[in-house]
Design a protein around this nucleic acid. Structure first.
Lengths: 229, 229
DNA sequence: GGCGGCAATATTGTCAACAATTTTGACAGC
DNA sequence: GCTGTCAAAATTGTTGACAATATTGCCGCC
C-alpha cells in the first residue's frame, strides 16, 4: 500500500503570486491530509521561519484559509485547524449532494458520450480485483479521476472551486470511509450506474444517481460515525 | 421609491475582529451595490487612509475579497472589482439553481408547516398592488425575507455562507432583472407555488419548483442580457 | 503631429520593529 | 498540596519604512 501522491485537489484562484501560491498550497495540503490535525495550533513566527517569509504574508494566507473554512482564528489567541463536528459533516454532505449531482448533470449535457469510455474501463471488472487486493490507493485514484473529468466536462469554474473547497474539508473522512467493509464495493457499483447513464446521455438520471450516491455515503458515515470522526 | 437599506446580506464568518469586520463589510457593501463598479481600481494606500488603518490590513482584506470572487488581484498591478462576464453569470446561475433548491427542500423538511404562513401572507394579494405601484423595493424586500427565513430554517451554515457569497456576486443583476416587464409578476407567481408546496410539507415538490424558478430567472436574464449586463 | 526612450512619480511587495494581549511559570499564603 | 497573584516570556496585532515594479509625464527625434 505504497503512499501515492494522488488526489491532491488544486485550487488555482488566489493570487498567481508564486510565493503565496506555494505557501497557501503547502499549508492547505498539510491540513487536508491531517499532517496538521484538527485543533493543531498554527504559530505565525514558526511558519514564517520555516517558509522564509515575514509574518505579514503568513497572516494574509491565514485570512484565505479561514475564508475557506480550513482554519479558525480567534482574536489575540491565534489560529487552529478547524475541527470537524458531526453536524458540520452533515452540512457538508447536504451541500455536496446537490453540487456533485449538478456536476454530473452538466458534464453529461456538455460532453460527447464517448468521453466516458475511459472512466467506464477504469471502473470496469479490473477494479473488482483491485479492491480484492485492498488497494485503496488505486480506488481513491479512480474516484479522483472521475471527479476531475466530470469537473472538466462540466466547464463551470464557480462550481469547480466550490467542489474543491468542499472536498478539501471532507477528504480525510472520505478516505476513512473507504475502509468500512463493503463501502468501496458499493461505491464502485453506484459509479458504474452513474457512468452508464452518462454514456447514454441521460443527464437527469445520472444526476439522480449521483445524488443517491452521496446520500448513501452520508448514511454510511452516520452509521460508522464513531469509528470515522 | 425611497432608498431602503434592505437586502444587505451579511456574512459573519471571517475574524470576529471588530475592525476587520467593519473594513471587510464596508468594502463588500460598496462592491455588491456597485458603488465600486466592476473594473474599479482599489488602491491600498487610499483605503488605508480612509479607514485609518495600515496597508497590511487592507492587503489581508483583499485576500478574503479575492477568495470570495469579489475582486481580482494581478501581481504588482493591484486589485480591481471583478467584472461579470455573461458566461460567468451563467455559471453562477447553474450553481444557484441547485443550492437554492436544496435550501428550500431542507427548510421544508426541518421547519413546521405553519412557519411559512407569514411569507404566504407577504406574497399574497397585497403584493399585486405593490407591484402595480412599481414598488420594487418592497418586492426586493419580500424576496430577501423569503431567502432569510429559508436559510434560517434550513439550518445549514455551510449552505448559508455559500448562498450569501453567490448572492453577493449576482445581487445587482437580480435587482436589474426585476425591472424587466413581467418578470416580477412571474417571480411572485412562482414563489406562491413554492410556498404552497412548503406549507403542504412537500419538500421535493418545493425543491423542484424553486429550481425551475432559478432556471426561469436565468432564461429571462439570457433574453434580456444586453440590457442587464 | 506622432512615437520611442528616459526620468520622475505612484503603487505594490516585503519586512523588521514595536505595542498589546495572552500564556507560562514561579512563589507566597492558606 | 492547592490556589491566587504577579512578573517573565511568548504570541498576536499593527505600523511605518524600504525595495521592487509599474505608471505617468517629459523631451528629443523622425
Amino acid at each position: 500500500m505504497a503512499a501515492r501522491k494522488s488526489s491532491s485537489t488544486v485550487i488555482e484562484l488566489a493570487s498567481a503570486n508564486p510565493g503565496t501560491e506555494r505557501l497557501l498550497g503547502e499549508l492547505r495540503r498539510r491540513i487536508v491530509c491531517h499532517e496538521l490535525p484538527p485543533g493543531a495550533r498554527l504559530r505565525e513566527q514558526d511558519l514564517a521561519n520555516e517558509f522564509g517569509v515575514s509574518r505579514a504574508r503568513i497572516r494574509e494566507t491565514f485570512g484565505i484559509l479561514e475564508e475557506r473554512g480550513l482554519i479558525e482564528r480567534i482574536p489575540n489567541r491565534g489560529a487552529i485547524v478547524t475541527r470537524l463536528e458531526a453536524d458540520k459533516v452533515k452540512e457538508l454532505f447536504e451541500v455536496r449532494e446537490v453540487l456533485e449531482a449538478q456536476m454530473v448533470r452538466l458534464a453529461t449535457e456538455k460532453a460527447p458520450p464517448e468521453t466516458w469510455d475511459a472512466l467506464i474501463e477504469l471502473f470496469g471488472p479490473s477494479m473488482d480485483e483491485t479492491l480484492a487486493r485492498n488497494d485503496f490507493d488505486a480506488y481513491a485514484e479512480a474516484n479522483y479521476q472521475f471527479r476531475r473529468q466530470c469537473i472538466a466536462a462540466a466547464d463551470n469554474e464557480v462550481l469547480s472551486n466550490l467542489l474543491d473547497s468542499l472536498y478539501d474539508r471532507t477528504q480525510v473522512l472520505i478516505r476513512r470511509l473507504v475502509l468500512v467493509p463493503g463501502r468501496a464495493q458499493e461505491g464502485i457499483r453506484q459509479h458504474r450506474g452513474i457512468l452508464a447513464a452518462m454514456r447514454a446521455g441521460q443527464a437527469e438520471e445520472a444526476e439522480r444517481l449521483k445524488r443517491a450516491n452521496i446520500r448513501d455515503a452520508r448514511d454510511w458515515f452516520t452509521n460508522y460515525q464513531k469509528y470515522l470522526l
